[in-house]
């Protein structure tokens, strides 16, 4: 569960990025986080993974209270989350398999577990045959799917996808959304950060809109304006 209670966050220069946000996302929910560029979507996700710290209010993420979390607990919190970055953050010198395995290695997973899980998740995202390819040999959509496999491989509780359809065409957008829904059906909480209202309207899920660091609407449906 993710629970924001009157959360505000301002940068050192005094700029308020998030202002008095109250938001509750239950386990297993699928939520779109929408808003214009600079609205505060990314800051909100950064607060969830503790890349930024809460200035005031209470924030609970998967059992961790982030307003008072100690630095040594942050890695544990992050292991409950899988993040798919907008720019994928794949490593060019690693193969697809190694890219996915790397996410497990860095959290100290056993090699035997890595050997079991990586092929499984490559299968889930449909990239079993590309395991030995390097990222620059893949299409944008395939790279995106590697990023998803990597986000899933540590069996996170919550998956956050930051603009997952930002760099892909319409067909691939659908593929990616299907993949996210599949992940959601596995029981994971999925948070999709996007400004593409066409996708939002197509899937009729819960939509949280942020403007200037504040939540201006929070409803489920499919008739949202651009």
């Amino acid at each position: 569960m993710i629970n924001f209670e009157n959360v505000s966050m301002e940068y050192r220069n005094g700029t308020a990025a998030v202002n008095n946000v109250t938001l509750k996302i239950e386990d297993g929910e699928f939520v779109f986080l929408v808003g214009h560029s600079g609205a505060g979507k990314t800051t909100l996700t950064k607060l969830m993974i503790c890349e930024e710290r809460v200035s005031s209010g209470k924030l609970e993420v998967n059992g961790y209270h982030l307003e008072k979390i100690h630095s040594w607990s942050i890695p544990k919190l992050r292991r409950t989350m899988g993040v798919v970055f907008q720019d994928f953050k794949l490593f060019d010198k690693m193969t697809v398999y190694e890219n996915v395995a790397f996410a497990m290695r860095v959290v100290g997973a056993k090699p035997s577990l890595i050997r079991k899980r990586v092929p499984f998740f490559l299968d889930v995202v449909g990239l079993s045959l590309k395991a030995d390819s390097f990222p620059n040999e893949l299409s944008g959509g395939e790279q995106q799917r590697v990023a998803f496999a990597r986000a899933l491989v540590n069996n996170p509780h919550t998956v956050i996808a930051d603009e997952p359809t930002g760099n892909v065409d319409v067909d691939l957008t659908e593929d990616i959304m299907e993949l996210l829904l599949k992940i959601n059906k596995l029981g994971k909480t999925v948070i999709v950060v996007t400004h593409d209202m066409n996708i939002v309207n197509s899937y009729k899920k819960r939509v949280v809109r942020i403007e200037q660091g504040e939540i201006v609407s929070d409803k489920t449906g499919g008739d949202f304006e651009q």
Partner: peptide, 17 residues
């Protein structure tokens, strides 16, 4: 640096990095 950033966000401990 990208690897390090990724490691941090993945939940790698400081010792591991």
């Amino acid at each position: 640096r990208n690897e390090i950033t990724f490691m941090r966000l993945c939940g790698a401990t400081k010792a591991m990095i």
